[in-house]
Design a protein around this nucleic acid. Sequence first.
DNA 1: ATAGACTCTATACCCGGGTACCGACTCAAC
DNA 2: GTTGAGTCGGTACCCGGGTATAGAGTCTAT
Lengths: 143, 143
Amino acid sequence: MSKERPLQIGDVARKAGVNVQTLRYYERRKLLAPVRRKASGYRIYDEDAVRTIHFIKRAQDLGFTLKEIRELLALKVTARGQCRRVRDRATEKLENVRAKIKMLRKIERTLVKLVKTCESENTSKPCPIIEALGKEKMADADK
Amino acid sequence: MSKERPLQIGDVARKAGVNVQTLRYYERRKLLAPVRRKASGYRIYDEDAVRTIHFIKRAQDLGFTLKEIRELLALKVTARGQCRRVRDRATEKLENVRAKIKMLRKIERTLVKLVKTCESENTSKPCPIIEALGKEKMADADK
DNA sequence: ATAGACTCTATACCCGGGTACCGACTCAAC
DNA sequence: GTTGAGTCGGTACCCGGGTATAGAGTCTAT
C-alpha cells in the first residue's frame, strides 16, 4: 500500500499524455472522477487515474467508444465475477474487427487485380480500372 | 446502351437507402453531382448515382473517410487516357488498405489474447482483460 | 505581499458525417 | 386552378471526441 501523494489535474495530464481539458471532459462523460477535491475546488487524483487513462486510450485503439468504455469501467468497479460480461464485450468487438478485415481483404484483392490488369494492358484504351469502378460490384463488401 | 429515365433526388435516395439531405450533402462534398438540372433547378440523376452511393457506403464501412472516397471517385472521373495516374492512385490506395489491415490484425491478436486469458482464468479474481488494458503495452497497436 | 504557474467554471469552437426545418417554388393529377 | 407531394437553397442543429479561451480564484517561492 504505497502512500501515494496526491496529483493535480495537470500532473495526471502530463503523466498520461493527454491534456487537462480532456480530463475534465472525461469527468463530464463519467469516465474518470478525481478521488476528491481540495477546499479550493482543485481536483485531486491518485496514480490510478493515470492507469485509467491508459486504459481508456488502449480501449479506444481497440475500437471501443467512450460510452462503451464507461461501461467497461463500470464493470471493473462492480467486477469480481463480472468477468464474463467483459469477455463478451471483447468477443463482440473481436468479431467486429474480423468482419472489417474481411472486407478490406476483398478490396485489397480487387485493387491488386485492377492494378495488374492495368499494368499488362497496352497503354491508351479505356483504362481498365475506371471501367471496373463503374461496374456494380468490385469488391462488394456485402456489409 | 439502355435508355435510362431520369431520376429525381428522392428516387435516388429511396433506391440507395439514404436520405435526400445526404445526397445534397454529398454534392457539397463533391462526391456526387446530378447529371444535370431541370430548368426549375430540380436535380436529375441516372442509375449510376445509385451505384455511386452504394460504392460510397461500402467504402465507408471499410473505414474510408468521405475525403478519401472523393479521391477514389476522382480516379473514375479524371480517367480518359491517364491510365498511369489512375494506376498510381489505385496503388496508393492499395498500400493504404494494407496498412489498415495490418492495424486491424494487431488489434485482432490483442483481443484474441485477452479473451483467451479470460477464458482460461478461473472465475472470480480481477478480470484479466481489465487488468491487461490498464497495463501500458499489450500488443501495442502503435498508432 | 506579490509574481507566476496552476486551477476553477463556463462557454464556444473544431471536425466529420450527417439530419431537420424553413418558406418558396414545381409538378402531376384531378 | 387547386391540392398534395416533391424539391429548392439556406440555416441550424445533432452526435462523438475533443480543444480553446476567458475571467476569476489558488498556491508557492521569494
